[in-house]
Nucleic acid binder design. Structure first.
Ligand SMILES: [Zn+2]
Ligand SMILES: [Zn+2]
Lengths: 273, 273
DNA sequence: GCTGTTTACTAACAC
DNA sequence: GTGTTAGAAAACAGC
């Protein structure tokens, strides 16, 4: 499997706080890196810069259940996770397209969210599904007791990397969710060393709080990793350069700004190196 | 209806804190007071001293669903109430018969608890029953998600005023729960004026937090009444004379101490003046 | 959408 | 049994 030498940049503002954003692309990128699924050279820029994943745009489009991006709020709602369960995951930051003055959106990778959800809720698809049903029953009770329903959420800021056109490559590898995690690699993130799977980049421990007593297999080494955001009293995103926060870096030629409803269409081919 | 001139005593400890206990019997008791149900003169001493209710021991025995006494813990569990819903109700204090060194038991009147439960949960027996079922379903969900069950409670300190023998009078009045509350009387409790129904002695407002949007009839005047216990940092019952706290007063010739399991048998006739 | 605060409700503990 | 505390989950409010 192709490996990438990862070297993540730090951003330090005038107060000396570490801004929890990966600003730079991996400094050393193997020439001719190829998609982990199909070996195509048209690698997704967003995934490689923000998530250290080498996947071609074709495979990204073909597997939205793995490679779509979800806001923090959506992640908690749709994957039954809490703040703490997300604290160890990498995320992409992006300005809120509808309310530019609000806090930037934090976008998590569907693949990571699914892994964390399984870790938290019993380890199997079935136990996870039961957890969802339990929550639904619980909410139904609450709603009918209060007589009111707290209106559905819309998640207008989620990002679908799949775009619209372009046929997916037919020769996808097996589902990366079913690979065996490889914890041998140690990565440096914001000055802290961390253990992430060299294939899917999910953190080894993830600090999930399990709901079910069964530990479930597949996450042995539990070395601590500091939370990426320091305990800032003020919102960190107001102190640094906002431009630096919502784009991977000056060297990145990212896709055009979201048109409306926060959708992010990379189908025109701009999400490749 | 027979009225009783109520004058409740206060207890002030060396720190000047008002001890939330009614120490004395109503100072003026109408000679020949008679049961509100059947006009019998054998009035229950406990109910008249602690709850200002004039009911004969026969009627007390006949209607345990109205006149039994329940500890605060039992009240919350069995009537679906919270601390705040009990804060305005009168209660009798009594030493914990199994653990005399523990805090005194607070005993509430079943009739009052039922009224508060109805006020809180929709106003009808049916809505109240639904609320109970909802709680049970909610707890079932919690239990199966946590895998464990938090052991049943026993309520060994509840008091059954009905005793064992003695036939109930056949000529009971209609259920006092169905009378129309009479808020015209204003009573002084621990130095604060309060509005209570002159028939059943339930407070006018009761500070219930309703769960259902429907207000329901039957509790118009909402004058504020201070919480009977000040914000004591230390347990108030350790500062005064304990004897004074667990009995209505020195003048009271109360029933003998509870034999075991906290049961309080007044059937031998000691619960009358 | 993100963050912090507030509000029930539950469980665990000490007395 | 009572009071206190801590935890999880939901609802609000500002930004
Ligand atoms: Zn590919
Ligand atoms: Zn009677």
């Amino acid at each position: 499997m192709d490996q990438v030498e990862s070297a993540l940049g730090l951003s330090v503002d005038i107060d000396g706080n570490v801004v929890p954003v990966r600003e730079k692309t991996p400094q050393v990128r193997r020439v001719g890196a190829r998609c982990a699924h199909c070996s195509s050279p048209r690698v997704s820029d967003i995934l490689s810069r923000w998530f250290e994943l080498i996947v071609c745009t074709g495979c990204v489009r073909a597997r939205p259940e793995l490679y779509s991006l979800h806001s923090k709020t959506a992640a908690k709602e749709e994957y039954l996770l809490a703040d703490e369960d997300l604290s160890e995951l990498p995320f992409m930051m992006r300005a809120n397209s509808r309310h530019p003055s609000w806090a930037p959106v934090q976008l998590f990778l569907a693949k990571h969210l699914h892994i964390q959800a399984l870790r938290k809720h019993g380890g199997t698809e079935e136990s996870l599904m039961q957890a969802f049903e339990e929550r639904e029953r619980r909410r139904t009770l609450l709603r009918q007791s209060r007589g009111r329903l707290p209106q559905r959420l819309h998640f207008t800021q989620d990002v679908d990397l799949s775009g619209t056109e372009s046929a997916p490559p037919a020769d996808l590898l097996s589902d990366p969710l079913e690979h065996r995690h490889d914890w041998r690699e140690e990565t440096s993130i914001d000055g802290e060393t961390a253990v992430v799977c060299s294939t899917c980049r999910v953190p080894a421990s993830g600090h999930v709080r399990r709901r079910s007593p069964s530990p479930g297999p597949g996450s042995p080494p539990d070395r601590k990793r500091a939370n990426r955001r320091g305990q800032a009293a003020q919102p960190t995103w107001t102190r640094g350069s906002e431009a630096a926060l919502v784009s991977p870096g000056p060297a990145a030629a990212e896709a055009p700004g979201a048109p409306l409803f926060g959708h992010f269409d990379l189908s025109s081919g701009s999400d490749t190196d």
